[in-house]
């Protein structure tokens, strides 16, 4: 099966003061449609850097990142932004919802950016909130929601433009065990419905839910478990 998202000998170096940090060192990784991949490894091993490269948030120092065969790292900023908007969903550890917007408006934000008509995005936002189990919370602002609820809104926002893949960085890191388990169940449902998932996690329970676990250390992949 051809790769949906592929990293080809990707490197990412950062300069921190005088020191050169080699966060990602020649990683090659394919993600196929509908896959559920967990990136695990110790802190600072380059998991989040790789996730950012896969999602087009960052550009590799060397190597290529391809989405359906197209090199996204070489895209100009406007095209790259559009790529993220339409094809990638992001979920962050700290939810990062817009505090001024209601849950429904947060979910509708990427749709508004994509030019979806107001009525349509409103309906889809409510539908997505229902999907993540928050149909009664559409008018609530993030400050009126619990951590688990905020993360559900963030997942709904990631799904707003029906992306092919959702990238999530430590999305249960700020949640208690029970809420984390609920979020994992929600992700499994999302994956079962056809969305590819790539998660960065320290959470073993979450890693076990993935069909493939990619172990990283010092910027390289050291092991890969599970079926493709």
């Amino acid at each position: 099966m051809s790769a949906l998202l592929a990293a080809e000998d990707v490197h990412r170096d950062y300069r921190v003061g005088d020191e050169l940090v080699r966060a990602v060192r020649g990683i090659t990784l394919d993600i196929t449609s509908g896959e559920f991949v967990a990136l695990v490894g110790p802190s600072g091993c380059g998991k989040s850097s790789l996730l950012n490269l896969l999602g087009g948030i960052d550009r590799p120092t060397a190597g290529r990142v391809r989405f359906r065969g197209v090199d996204v790292a070489g895209m100009p900023d406007r095209a790259l932004t559009r790529f993220r908007l339409l094809h990638i969903g992001f979920v962050f550890q700290r939810f990062y919802l817009m505090p001024a917007l209601t849950a429904a408006d947060n979910v509708a934000l990427p749709m508004a950016e994509a030019g979806v008509a107001k009525q349509e995005r409103r309906m889809r936002a409510l539908e997505l909130l229902r999907y993540v189990g928050l149909d009664g919370r559409a008018r609530h602002r993030p400050s009126q929601l619990s951590g688990g609820e905020q993360q559900r809104v963030a997942i709904a926002r990631a799904m707003a433009n029906a992306p092919a893949v959702v990238l999530a960085d430590e999305l249960t890191g700020e949640l208690d065990a029970r809420t984390g388990a609920e979020i994992i169940a929600l992700l499994q449902q999302l994956n079962a419905d056809g969305t590819a998932l790539v998660l960065v996690t320290h959470d073993e329970q979450l890693a076990r839910a993935a069909r493939r676990v990619v172990h990283m250390r010092d910027g390289v992949i050291v092991n890969c478990d599970g079926a493709r």
Partner: peptide, 14 residues
Amino acid sequence: LGEIAVMRAIGVSR
């Protein structure tokens, strides 16, 4: 800046 970075990450244009 963090909030703006999130907006950019989810596809809000410059």
